[in-house]
Amino acid sequence: MATANTVNGRIERARTELAPTQMAAGALFIAALGFTLLFVQDPLVHDSLHNFRHAAGIACH
């Protein structure tokens, strides 16, 4: 509990707690997820999410 309870403290904490490889893996995972969500506009995926997209208020037809 040495680090101060501030946003900077939390960033510092994450830096000490997480190994660089863990951070890299996390960042890569998030990037992959974002990429998938953005660019998987394949009709199969896009159409099967039709009802969900409407329910989530993200309509794009």
Partner: peptide, 15 residues
Amino acid sequence: TAVSMAVTKAVSVAA
């Protein structure tokens, strides 16, 4: 559409 309504429904629930 590329998929049937049944698939759309199932995938939408999972999503």
